[in-house]
Design a protein around this nucleic acid. Structure first.
Lengths: 196, 196
DNA sequence: CAAATTTCCTGACCTGGTTCATTTTTACTG
DNA sequence: CAGTAAAAATGAACCAGGTCAGGAAATTTG
């Protein structure tokens, strides 16, 4: 199937695997369709799956004490999305995760993932690489949030992810970048003015 | 030796290992003493080691385009410290890492770590767990930086790490929490006033 | 395709946190 | 342990970005 080939390609791209390992890994995942605006993670419920996006787009966010949403992560094709503090430690989630478009994802359950990692060194490596990349990615984001102004963070994002920007609602991007939707609107106006 | 027992204890705490594995892992690391104010990572140089703090304290930071320092991480006993974007991808560092006290660390080289992970499933697991924890930790920090005010971030830090706070210079903590040293001074004054 | 809802825009005003300049305190160093 | 350097405190002016309120687009939904 075409969609699963995307996942196979993703795996091959990360590390060398035998055909058996490839199929063993793929078989551990379950395909699931998710409609736009449907939630796959909600606060209070322990996250039972790691989710890989085959098609579509997601957004995870928290709600602070004043009721304001803060986007923690976006995920489009070939990205994982989960509340890792809930999933890894099997504790109740603090985040929401919702589909921004009609989407198709692959899910592994926590137990299956544990079993995969135990049973085969290569699978362990696969998840180790994923965790390392996630950690490095988060560190880059922390550096950006500490060192850049709101406008610079926006520029960095649009330059790094030009294709993704267009698929995201503005309020979601603003809250990901740590600013209000009004301020992002102003930044965009400033830019549009300058360009002509 | 007493100091190495600290590391052995750390390993045992994370996952079950045989005696052979334990000694194989420990043997891969080299002990190194680092004087206060001495640098172990500097921008432009590719980071060749992952560092585990046995004794002492470290701080990593970047310098932005205006010359202002931003602390990315602290590390005391039982913490790792490195510029992971440099170490993992073996590219030139963007960060500094400096000893805040006379310290003793354990170092593995990049090559040795790769070899460890390849040669033994358990070692792979050890590093996978470390990366997962780092990722989850960073995510919590991102959530805090998006959802909390400067004072709330300070409170969270002092409550989570009451013992570490006292070992850190104020300017370093301020820049870790994403505020100026002046503002942190004000927060502390406000608190000192209220308490009496 | 019209109505309802959600998203986005815009302007006026506000504030948490910064900047700058000076003083006080603490920590090193010979 | 005196002299110097580094860190922390303090006050006043300032600003990046937030808040609030109203209207205009764009999307959804029946």
């Amino acid at each position: 199937m075409d969609l699963l080939d995307r996942f196979r390609h993703f795996i091959k791209n990360r590390l060398p695997v035998t055909d058996d390992e490839m199929e063993g890994l793929v078989a551990a995942f379950t395909l699931r369709k998710v409609k736009k605006k449907q939630f796959i993670i909600q606060p209070g419920f322990t996250v039972k799956h790691r989710n890989f996006v085959l098609q579509g787009a997601f957004r995870s966010y928290v709600i602070d004490k004043d009721g304001i949403e803060h986007t923690i992560q976006f995920a489009v094709e070939d990205w994982w999305i989960s509340d890792i503090n809930s999933y890894q430690y099997q504790r109740p989630a603090t985040m929401f995760a919702v589909a921004l478009e009609d989407s198709i994802i692959l899910q592994v359950s926590f137990e299956t993932e544990q079993h995969l990692k135990q049973s085969n060194h290569t699978f362990e490596t696969f998840f180790r690489i994923g965790a390392e990349r996630t950690a490095a990615f988060h560190q880059r984001r922390i550096i950006s949030s500490l060192t850049l102004s709101a406008e610079e963070r926006y520029n960095e994002f649009t330059e790094t992810y030009p294709d993704i920007v267009q698929r995201l609602p503005q309020y979601a991007l603003a809250s990901y970048l740590g600013m209000t939707t009004e301020f992002l609107s102003r930044i965009r106006r400033r830019k549009a003015g300058k360009k002509s």
